[in-house]
Amino acid sequence: MTKSTETAGATTSYLRIFERFALIVVWALLILFFSVLMPSSFFNWGNFAILFASYAPAALLALAIIVPLTAGDYDLAVGATLTLSSCLVGVLNVWMGLPIVLCIVIALSAGAAVGLFHALFIIYFRIPSLVVTLGTTSLMTGIVQWMTNSSTIGGIDNSLIMAVVGGRIFGIPYSFYYAIAAVLVLWYVFEFTPLGRRLLFVGRGREVARLNGVSVDKMRVGALVSSGVIASAAGVLYAGTLGSADPYSGLNYLLPAFAAAFLGSTTILPGRFNALGTLVAVYFLGTGITGLTMLGIPLWVTNVFNGGALIAAVTISQLTRGREATDIG
């Protein structure tokens, strides 16, 4: 091996390391930028505590997205599932008087049922996942509006609120730590279990996976059901954070969550949807939106920011995944 070859190899290695952590560096620079502009209001622990807690449901929603994405399926209905879950908690607890624990169990079960409904049409009737989940988004939105009379439901049991935001560790509400726990669980499953490797194998090539003895359909069903349950958990977390159920809330999270899912696949483990990268991306986008809001920008700028971030994230993700595939080949 020549000296020039060794130098080129070392340079490539350094570039790969930089690529893994580039988003974290950009996030730090973004924090620095807003801190210089607003040193007293932005750069304080109270602001970051609110940021970490308020974006915990978005973090769970982004995690719900990356599970089926890893298997090659899209779930556009996660935002509607979040709304359905939170409103079920509100209706069952406030209007029907059911215990909050039972309401949470029913909400999570509804998420599993949504996942099974998706699997029925996507896997067994062979309808594209984009079409199915777009349809169920409209379906669940209508059901929620009927169920709630299109009104916000307040007065959710205080025990849920206390469990989500009533206590703090290092000044940060519990909701943030629930999101961290979910990230760690998914990270472990994806990186250190045969289940995670099989799921990745299915996403890379279903026919190849099937020929190697992987039960592709079962893996995809499991991914869709997991997505529904995690999205429902995000709804429960959201209800506990607000103390109420809003029938129009979940769809606002959908675009940022998808942007975070794809942007997360460009960091930590570039070329793969991964839980740690998704968490970084959620709070990178959250920092940008929070900083812009505190600067007093018009509402439409937030939509431009989210849409632009999604386009950029998908483009970078595709380029990275394409390069990774070339390297493997």
Rank of each mutant, 00 (worst) to 15 (best):
A182S: 12
T293Y: 05
A281H: 00
S35M: 04
I106C: 02
S54K: 14
I31S: 00
L237A: 01
T193K: 12
I106S: 00
W45C: 05
T133Y: 04
S109L: 15
S109A: 15
A181W: 08
V89H: 02
A223G: 04
C103F: 02
L84E: 07
Y55N: 13
Y174E: 11
R198K: 13
P298L: 03
A53M: 09
L186N: 02
I161S: 08
L285I: 05
L51T: 06
N149K: 12
I169W: 14
L184N: 10
G271A: 09
G166R: 01
E207Q: 12
L195H: 11
S85C: 02
F117K: 03
R272L: 14
I230P: 04
L195A: 08
P68H: 03
V236F: 04
G296W: 06
T141V: 07
F43M: 11
H118C: 08
N158E: 11
A22N: 04
L69N: 09
S41R: 11
G291L: 09
A245G: 09
G271K: 01
V225F: 06
I122L: 03
R20S: 14
N306K: 15
F34H: 07
G277C: 09
L200Y: 07
G196S: 06
T148V: 14
G264Y: 02
V144H: 09
I316S: 12
G196L: 11
L130N: 03
S85K: 00
T326K: 14
L186V: 10
D75Y: 06
G329C: 00
V144W: 04
L139T: 14
I66D: 03
S227Y: 00
G228Q: 06
I123L: 15
L263E: 03
G322P: 05
L102R: 01
P194V: 08
L92F: 11
A107S: 13
A77V: 01
G277K: 01
R198Y: 11
T267A: 13
A239F: 12
L211T: 06
A275K: 06
S35D: 03
S317R: 05
V183W: 06
F34S: 08
D75N: 15
I172D: 04
R198H: 12
S4L: 10
N158W: 03
C87F: 04
V280R: 00
G222L: 10
S40W: 07
L88K: 00
F21T: 14
A281D: 04
G154D: 08
L23W: 06
F192Y: 11
L263M: 15
T137L: 15
V304M: 14
P194H: 08
L279V: 04
G322M: 05
Y55S: 08
L269G: 05
I143T: 04
Q318P: 01
V25N: 01
N212M: 13
A209F: 08
I50A: 14
G111R: 00
Y14A: 10
V221Y: 05
T133C: 02
A234N: 08
A261Q: 10
V105L: 15
N47P: 13
F52R: 02
A312W: 07
P99E: 10
K3T: 14
G286P: 13
S40R: 09
M96T: 06
T293K: 09
V89T: 07
T137Q: 10
A209I: 11
L160G: 10
Y188W: 14
Y283N: 03
A49S: 13
T315N: 05
A22R: 01
S249E: 15
